[in-house]
Design a protein around this nucleic acid. Structure first.
Lengths: 314, 314
DNA sequence: CAATCTGAGAGGTGTTTCCTATCAATGAGC
DNA sequence: GCTCATTGATAGGAAACACCTCTCAGATTG
């Protein structure tokens, strides 16, 4: 077989040559590299060999750069500088919470939590460049598995292998109904059985909130209205206010969705109160799991300090 | 002792990592590098080890770049590009007669030969970037030995160890005297003994032409005028024309120095005709000795073809 | 649940690199 | 002119490294 592949110089060879080019003296150069002079000689010779070019003029008393050696020295310096830059970059990015991170959030959480969460992150982790993607649970889980996302904020459990889940907070579902509905007469907690007699409007496919609502309905024997599906929570609220039925609303959405003068009424449930757990998830194989765990911890701290619009749940 | 020196990545490791970053697949990357997959794995691991940083997220089914890996990949590509540039530069400059060369010329040759020589070089060796330095023999010999000059054009022999001498042409010395001098009466070749009765003007210290003239004088028992020394050949000619004495003029200087209406007369000598050999010299240790030898050959060819203002000598 | 594909590990071999000791050539000093 | 110090190159052997083949455990796919 032919050795078709031309060998390329090694960094050690380039360093060796550059040292000689600087000192124009093998022994001094060898000392500066903390290696023996013969090793240096052979390294430089090897470089000349791989380049098929004489780089140095040697006599026993003097060392000179050939014109080719002069130019090679310039390029060698560039190569080593690039290596240095690489090392510097690594050293720089080895500090935690530095660099880009892609965060995925589900739509039934994003509008209610992000407005408070993002400024908190920006203040606590200023060098972490967060990019936010909003998508349905299904999509988001695939993306985090594929590596297009690093962190996801969604309802737990994800039931996805290879993900670490960090619970952040629990929230109740409240029953939302038109304000002229008979249920508006009372105001104590409702038994979940009331769902059996109601038209229940849901989000469309892919939203985990839809599945969670369906689960609740199944437990009490109610059935959701098949006809109408909303594509977002604000739309869903409008449908309910418009009298098309009732729905289950996560507590964190309440302040936003009822803030405007919407013809909507809300009542809590009696225990067992339906609800969901929102948490952060990331690949267990990620190199930054410790950082992500600390991120989750920071979020929980902010919730405890009531800086996020969700209830503290033991 | 501590191993204070941080190890730096090797080019093989950077190549390995880049291949994996490109393919996101160890086996394919290994194939593209024509190496085995375990070797590739260990190379990448070694890189991560030396950088103390995880560059890849590996599961048994998928490979992902970490944020750090992403940035390192960019820098690694730069490093390898710099190496490629270096190789390209070498390949480019491996063609002969390419790149810079510093030529030294003595003042008693430069004005008479260079005007014809330089265009010839430019035409025959267009990629050779000649830089011309004019200085006295002594200076020029030191500079070529020190490596500040690569080629020197001067009178041979140099009697300097480590130099290769390439004779180019021989030239006679002519006797130059004022046109109203008694010698102007005749016109046949002169015996060198006439020098004994004349005031001989010389160049000042350091010019080899001065030494050569002195040698001629010593041989015939004449003595040079101690009072006046010219610092250049044109000046010397002016001194002679002005009647301060006679001098020995190299033949190649004749056309230039007598072209203007100078009150100067010239006569040849009878054999043995005094003269000098002009040649090219360069360090024997130079990496480009073959090129320089060819350069000398080209000059001799041009002389034979009468494209240079010197006489062809056997 | 079997088949298949992933990257990682183990063991052994060949090459490379490095060191110490030594050499021939050069130049400085007496 | 002779001696001696200094230069880069060379030789031989030890250590380190990189590589290959074989193999494995885990994950995905049908």
């Amino acid at each position: 077989m032919f050795p078709i592949n031309e060998p390329t110089p090694t960094l050690a060879q380039l360093r060796a040559f550059l040292a000689v080019a600087d000192h124009l003296h093998f022994r001094e150069a060898a000392v500066s590299l903390r290696m023996s002079q013969p090793a240096l000689s052979s390294a430089v010779s090897a470089l000349e060999e791989t380049l098929h070019t004489q780089l140095l003029e040697r006599t026993t008393r003097k060392v000179l750069l050939t014109p080719a050696g002069d130019r090679v020295a310039v390029h060698a310096a560039r190569v080593l500088k690039a290596v240095g830059d690489l090392m510097g970059e690594v050293a720089h990015s080895r500090e935690p919470f530095h660099g880009p991170a892609h965060l995925g959030v589900i739509p039934t959480v994003a509008p209610y939590v992000l407005p408070a969460l993002l400024p908190m992150f920006a203040r606590r982790f200023p060098r972490l460049k967060l990019t936010v993607h909003e998508a349905k649970t299904e999509t988001i889980l695939e993306e985090v598995r594929e590596g297009r996302l690093d962190l996801v904020l969604l309802a737990l459990p994800t039931e996805t292998a290879g993900l670490v889940e960090e619970p952040l907070y629990d929230e109740d579902f409240l029953l939302a109904f038109p304000s002229d509905h008979p249920l508006a007469e009372g105001d104590g907690p409702l038994d979940r059985d009331v769902l059996k007699g109601l038209d229940i409007v849901l989000l469309n496919q892919g939203h985990c909130l839809r599945e969670q609502a369906i689960d609740v309905c199944r437990e009490v024997g109610a059935r959701a209205t098949a006809a109408t599906y909303a594509t977002s929570l604000p739309t869903l609220v409008q449908l309910v206010a418009g009298g098309l039925g009732v729905t289950l609303l996560p507590e964190s959405a309440v302040p936003v969705e009822t803030g405007k003068r919407v013809r909507l009424a809300l009542r809590r449930f009696q225990p067992p109160v339906p609800g969901r757990t929102i948490g952060l998830a990331y690949r267990a194989s990620s190199a930054r799991t410790p950082e992500y765990a600390q991120l989750a911890k920071a979020v929980r701290g902010a919730i405890r300090a009531r800086r996020l619009p969700v209830r503290v749940t033991s």
